[in-house]
Nucleic acid binder design. Structure first.
Length: 190
DNA sequence: CAGTGGATGCTCT
DNA sequence: GAGCATCCACTGT
């Protein structure tokens, strides 16, 4: 048995629009807990919806650093959201992880989430961070070493494309990518 | 199933 | 002080 290759920094050093769909079907593990990525969104620095659009601030500083690192921010004062920094350093672009299909450490994820319904364990950016135990302390950590491990997709999945969720600005561009017909999406594609 | 509103804290204006 | 890259509970069909 040979495991799929781990994604290294050079994988992320490309356009978010190339990286994002290739993350669908990859496996994300944090301290050995996680599953298969089924939904992501791309945020380019020229995009008014990106945190980096208005320039560098203390919060988004990691986005301006090298690719292959985690950008974790607090959402609505309550939740944490995980991004993977992409493109050459300074591009300040990233991919938001929105949903995974749980495969590893399911009992622990259920305990952290306080629910048992598999479909609600990791189907949403805040939900998946809660299930995996990712918080602001992980902001700026490299993605190619423990506690992170990201394994490349083993087959080319069918990719669904749509508009991003929860935005007021740049709500019309189709930069949301998902695994077609997955039961674990945060919302279905049209 | 669709729609609404509250929680909650930080960032930036 | 406004505005969130969200989630959950609750309402009404």
């Amino acid at each position: 048995m040979s495991n799929p290759p781990r994604l290294q920094r050079d994988f992320f050093a490309r356009s978010v629009h190339a990286v994002a769909p290739e993350l669908i079907g990859a496996r994300l593990l944090f301290r050995g807990v996680g599953g298969t990525i089924v939904e992501v969104e791309a945020y380019h620095h020229t995009d008014p919806a990106a945190h980096s659009f208005r320039g560098r601030t203390p919060r988004n500083a990691v986005m301006f650093g090298p690719p292959g690192f985690a950008y974790v921010y607090r959402s609505y004062g309550i939740h944490w959201c995980l991004n993977l920094v992409c493109e050459p350093q300074g591009s300040a672009s990233a991919v938001l992880l929105r949903a995974i299909e749980p495969t590893h450490g399911i009992a622990l994820m259920r305990r952290r989430r306080g629910i048992s319904d598999m479909r609600l364990l990791c189907s949403g950016p805040g939900r998946l961070c809660q299930a995996l135990g990712i918080t602001g302390t992980e902001n700026g950590l490299p993605l190619d070493r423990f506690p992170f491990a990201i394994e490349a997709a083993t087959a080319a999945p069918k990719i669904a494309v749509g508009t991003r969720i929860g935005l007021t600005r740049a709500a019309d561009v189709p930069w949301r990518y998902g695994l077609e017909d997955s039961r674990y999406l945060s919302r279905p594609f049209r």
